[in-house]
């Protein structure tokens, strides 16, 4: 019989957080494999710092903060490729593949929208996704990204202005129009 002698599971439930970390990492890197590398590094940091997490506070925001820092540090180390996200072809495209599903929008529309999001500069992209998809409070986003609230708002405005422009007369802009 083997009884594990390790410490019990960490206070923060890191396992349960993995899907959201992977999604956010994919938004940041635009690449499935690099995203999982980033998640792995983030989990390692989170484990080291697990005693610093205050139980009861939003674990997501705490982990996104760690991931943001890991990402920024790695990007500083790897300036040469600028973490440029190639979303149209090659490896990177895989990150943005939209699964088939039966929602309000067609797969083509969603792919188009997500591709546009992928083309936003990473600092606008992360604010947009944290607000629109993760539905974090703006104050939380400011903490995660360690930027002033005003900067959150201006990046969000710019990101959304670009999307609106891209879909000024595109399909996602008018999903409910009935054509007879």
């Amino acid at each position: 019989m083997s009884v594990a002698t390790d410490a019990p599971l960490p206070q923060p439930d890191l396992l349960a957080a993995i899907p959201r970390l992977r999604r956010y990492a994919r938004v940041l890197t635009g690449d499935v494999n690099r995203a999982d590398d980033l998640v792995q590094d983030t989990l390692a940091r989170a484990w080291e710092k697990r005693r610093l997490w205050t139980a009861g506070t939003d674990l997501r925001a705490w982990l996104f903060t760690i991931m943001h820092n890991v990402f920024v540090n790695q990007r500083a180390l790897a300036r040469r490729d600028q973490m440029h996200v190639s979303l149209d072809d090659g490896e990177g495209g895989e990150a943005w593949q939209i699964p088939v599903h039966a929602g309000q929008y067609t797969r083509v529309e969603l792919t188009e929208l997500v591709t546009h999001v992928g083309r936003l500069p990473v600092d606008q992209r992360e604010v947009l996704v944290l607000a629109a998809v993760e539905e974090l409070k703006y104050e939380e986003i400011a903490q995660v990204l360690e930027i002033p609230l005003g900067t959150v708002m201006s990046r969000l405005s710019r990101a959304r202005a670009k999307l609106r422009l891209a879909f000024a007369d595109g399909p996602v802009a008018t999903p409910l129009k009935v054509v007879k």
Binding site: P19, H101, Y105, L113, V129, R160, L163, A173
Partner: peptide, 21 residues
């Protein structure tokens, strides 16, 4: 438009949460 884009983005990215880890 913002609300539509929010909903569409969630529609697009939520399935990623179901992927095998």
């Amino acid at each position: 438009a913002v609300r539509r884009h929010n909903a569409a983005l969630r529609d697009a990215l939520d399935p990623w949460l179901e992927e095998q880890i």
